[in-house]
Amino acid sequence: MQTATKSPLEDLDTEMRAEIRHCLDKWKEKDGNLIMILHEIQNRHGYVPRGASLFLAQETGVAVARIYEVLTFYHYFRLVPPGKHNLTVCNGTACYLKGSGRVLGELERRLGISEGKTTSDRLFHLETVRCIGYCAMAPAMVVDGKAMGKLTTDDVASVVEKIRKREEGESNGQSRN
């Protein structure tokens, strides 16, 4: 049962190290800085890579365990890279009553993933949120930052298929070049 002697940090690139050191310099004098630093990392990468957490722990003396307690407590933080296209289904009261369950169910079926997950080709990330203030248009969802309302399951299907077609076209175009 011999344990490895190589630290996972050895693989962390210098760019990430510099970026985290930069964040640290900016926030080190302020209270509650851990969350702000994690925000910056996520904003830049779309998620908080494990290497970033390990390095941050080493630089600040805050335990990795504590950093993960924070990361997993807040719904906002992600530990895996997001998909290329973000689908956020509103699950607020109005949308819920107007059938957000059907919208979500259709997306889960079409994408083959459950809420909070990313497809294995990293094309789609599916999540829910508690009200986007679009109640008059319930049930609603946000597709890559753009809100859509009064959704039917057919609408949902066509959104997914449109993105898929576009992506296929792009990759075919690339392969011809």
């Binding site: 990795v64 365990a65 993960y68 997993t72």
Partner: peptide, 17 residues
Amino acid sequence: ALSFLERGINNRMAPAG
């Protein structure tokens, strides 16, 4: 080594990650 991860019904004690 141990931390409290996640919240609510998903809350569990486990190593980070």
